[in-house]
Simulated assay, not measured.
Amino acid sequence: MARYAAGVEYLGAAYSGWQALTGLHTIQAELERALGRVADHPLTVTAAGRTDAGVHAMQQVVHFDSDAVRSDYAWLLGTNSNLAADVSLRWVQAVPIGFHARHSAVERSYRYVIHNRRARSALLGGRTAHWPRPLDAAAMHEAAQALVGELDFSSFRDSQCQSPTPMRNVRRIEVQRRGDFVVLDIAGNAFLHHMVRNITGTLVEVGLGKQPVAWVAQVLAARDRTKAGMTAPAEGLYFVGPQYPAEFALPKPPQPWFPGA
């Protein structure tokens, strides 16, 4: 059996999340179906991280095992020809059998996109979150710096989160305005269930002027989910991708292109 890694991009609007579940339309199930046709046998893919219903990915990374003799190009072209237009492999390459899409990752990054205009957009529906009231991106950025470091993120953790520990290391977080958009970029070693969406919903309270900048640090210290803001809508979230040690020679996550400067 050979092991392969693949980079996958997708729009999550039409799917019930990443994980294959009986009776649900999921990205994992569609990808396994398409890869299985190329391999001519059933196979299972393991992802760097699960995404919720409606969440998108610029470069999800998966691994799978197969004894089918196929070139990297054949895997890529054949799989994409069996996928819907909203899911696509970016690349495929053979990797050592010890590579693991989830356990080998050393960093993960996300982008959250808010369309901050009074009127909603017909073209951006399902691809951004919409907030009609003006947001102060500079205040959101300042408040967010309290979340950098190896910290207890219990206040930003979903009640259904299965992680044995709330400790995570956020290495950088940035909030900036780009025209009608407010963009949050965050990177860390790993993330709790709904952590990025809960952080975003909390920072929005600051951006709206409902809470002071110092409030976010107080929310973090409380270690209580009820003290934080709302869970921001799924459609604004993009999994930019994971990074791996250089020994695996995998493509790095793409530079997010949406929205532009």
Results as ranks from 00 to 15, higher is better:
Y4A: 01
E9W: 00
Y10S: 09
G23T: 07
L24M: 06
H25R: 14
I27Q: 01
Q28R: 06
R33Q: 12
V38I: 12
R50Y: 06
R50C: 09
A53P: 00
V55I: 07
V55A: 02
V55C: 03
M58D: 10
A74F: 03
A74L: 12
A74R: 13
T79W: 11
N82A: 03
D86V: 00
H100E: 08
V113D: 00
G125L: 14
R127C: 03
A129V: 07
D136P: 12
H141P: 04
L147Q: 09
L147W: 05
V148M: 08
E150Q: 14
S155L: 06
F156M: 11
S159G: 13
Q162P: 00
P164F: 09
R168A: 08
V170S: 05
E174M: 09
D180W: 01
L184E: 09
G188P: 03
N198H: 11
T200R: 01
V206I: 13
G207E: 03
Q211A: 12
Q211C: 06
A214P: 02
L220Y: 07
R223Q: 15
K227E: 15
A228N: 07
G229K: 07
G229D: 02
A232Y: 00
G236L: 03
G241Y: 00
Y244W: 09
F248Q: 10
A249G: 11
Q255K: 12
P259M: 06
G260S: 15
